[in-house]
């Protein structure tokens, strides 16, 4: 690389190219990473969208309709009705133990897929009203029940 002395026009030209290369490389890396995050992020969907979309990682967001929750602890099953922003309702079946504060949840994100006549969730994210001011740490507590990596 370069002439032995490290001076002269050749050298500066090469330096410029190297700098340009570095900049392009880092911009490329940045773009790649940003697109990886954006492409792999999971969109929140409505009931209508969930019915037409494939994949088992749909994030169905909406309100838990009060009084519709049925817990089947012995079968590790929770069923409830959910209403999305467009007003459409859908039964949700979650296979697992109900999250600790399931009973007081108002807003729910059910993660899973639409099957036959219901939304089959493998994970639930909940938002519960609390008499405590929702500080960031506090709000995380229990609101989260993440599947392991």
């Amino acid at each position: 690389m370069g002439n032995g002395l490290g001076f002269g026009p050749n050298r500066t030209h090469e330096m410029k190219n190297r700098k340009l290369g570095m900049i392009l490389l880092s911009l490329g890396g940045l773009a790649l990473m940003a697109s990886a995050f954006l492409v792999n992020a999971s969109p929140y969907v409505t009931v209508a969208q969930a019915k037409t979309m494939r994949g088992d990682n749909l994030h169905l967001a909406g309100d838990l309709i009060p009084g519709t929750m049925r817990v089947r602890s012995s079968e590790l099953k929770v069923e409830f009705q959910m209403k999305d922003a467009e007003g459409a309702t859908v039964p949700v079946i979650y296979a697992g133990t109900p999250p600790a504060n399931m009973g007081s949840a108002t807003k729910v994100v059910a993660i899973g897929q639409y099957q036959d006549d219901h939304f089959q969730a493998r994970q639930l994210l909940l938002k519960c009203p609390s008499k405590y001011e929702s500080t960031d740490k506090g709000a995380e507590a229990g609101a989260k029940k993440d599947a392991p990596y």
Binding site: A41, Y44, H59
Partner: peptide, 21 residues
């Protein structure tokens, strides 16, 4: 924030996405 600026529907980045990238 990016989604909001682009006027697109909100998305959630899951934990495993971070790990895998």
């Amino acid at each position: 924030l990016v989604q909001a600026l682009l006027g697109q529907a909100p998305k959630r980045v899951e934990e495993h996405t971070y790990h895998l990238i």
